[in-house]
């Protein structure tokens, strides 16, 4: 039998953006239904260990999310995917893969991002050689407290490569993913804390230390931890006879091609529009560049879309850092409140 849910706001996606928005809307007295396609809430935070730049534990944050969703007026469903949204007169109708229909006054898309699939950059040997891993796989290693390289043992030399899947016309992503530079700096420090003797080399094109304390952390990683930075993007990785990883790059500051052999290569994978973001944006005609959802006006109405009542927040719009996405969620709450009270 078909189930119909009536609510004020349907929030799609229970990552940081969706949770913070749903929580604050519920506290204002609105009825909120929050949907998450995965079994657990937290979105991409689930895949991390500690967050930059203050090394806050992701678990603490997830715990906080767990506390936030028990607020009055908020109902959360996990393991449910919203597959379709459409407007019907003054209401929005969302349907789920579980056969439910949600009738709401407004919809907030907080469908987030997906990490770039490193297989597309075949020249780095991801999925081909042992010891070539993504930044998210490295987070997993950190969670387990054990770092191992291509030979399954503690690495002596580790390379970090920035901009994998970002700033790269060859994979169709010309934009910068915003979070990976500082995340690489964080990794450098985390490696040195666990393996003080390991040599760490971060290959970058530009180090974008744009947030508060980022520059300080970068400096600290050099001065106190001895992380090395080489300006040049790795062109390819290959396997050596003894199962290590050989890298080719140019040290563009010395203007010399270099070869380096390491035990572990960490690819700092970028941010792409998630499947849900692409799917729902396409259905509603709000898809912008690179599959991200497009706001009505970047400077004036960045949580609105061309459709009254359909709102967007967080990384479904573009790459954001954690504080930025949460700030955007709060901004969306105000816009939705104005809309529901006919103030806009």
């Amino acid at each position: 039998m078909e189930k119909i849910i009536y609510t004020d706001i349907a929030v799609i996606g229970a990552g940081p953006t969706g949770i913070v928005a749903a929580y604050n809307l519920a506290r204002l007295g609105y009825k909120v239904s929050l949907f998450e396609k995965e079994e657990s809430l937290g979105g991409n935070i689930l895949k991390t260990y500690k967050l930059f730049p203050n090394f806050q534990s992701s678990n603490e944050l997830l715990q906080l999310f767990g506390e936030m969703i028990v607020v009055n007026n908020l109902s959360l469903q996990t393991g449910v995917t919203v597959t379709n949204i459409r407007k019907d007169n003054n209401h929005w109708i969302s349907t789920t893969n579980k056969g439910e229909t949600i009738v709401s006054k407004a919809v907030l898309m907080a469908t987030g991002f997906k990490p770039f699939d490193a297989h597309y950059k075949e020249e780095y040997g991801y999925g081909i050689y042992n010891g070539v891993i993504t930044s998210l796989e490295f987070e997993k290693m950190l969670k387990c407290g054990e770092i191992y390289g291509s030979n399954g043992i503690t690495p002596e030399k580790i390379a970090i490569l920035n901009c994998v899947g970002s700033r790269d016309a060859k994979v169709g992503n010309n934009y910068c993913s915003r979070v990976c530079c500082i995340n690489a700096v964080k990794f450098g420090i985390e490696i040195k804390e666990i393996l003080p003797k390991a040599e760490v080399y971060c290959f970058y094109m530009d180090l974008r230390m744009t947030g508060q304390f980022y520059e300080e952390l970068y400096r600290k990683s050099q001065q106190e931890y001895g992380v090395n930075y080489i300006r040049g993007k790795i062109s390819e990785a290959s396997q050596t006879a003894d199962n290590r990883i050989q890298l080719k790059a140019e040290d563009t500051l010395l203007r010399l091609p270099i070869k380096m052999t390491v035990d572990l290569l960490i690819l700092m994978i970028g941010i792409e529009a998630s499947e849900s973001t692409k799917e729902l944006s396409a259905q509603t005609g709000i898809m912008g560049e690179y599959g991200f959802a497009k706001s009505h006006s970047l400077l004036k109405a960045d949580n609105h879309t061309i459709h009254p009542g359909l709102f967007i927040a967080g990384t479904c719009k573009r790459p954001f850092t954690y504080p930025e996405t949460v700030a955007d969620a709060r901004a969306a709450v105000v816009e939705i409140q104005h809309y529901l009270e006919n103030k806009t």
Binding site: G232, K233, S235, E250, T252, P257
Partner: peptide, 14 residues
């Protein structure tokens, strides 16, 4: 953007 990929891969540059 001076990433150096071409120089790193170029057999002549070697």
């Amino acid at each position: 953007m001076n990433c150096g990929i071409c120089t790193a891969i170029c057999p002549a540059a070697e």
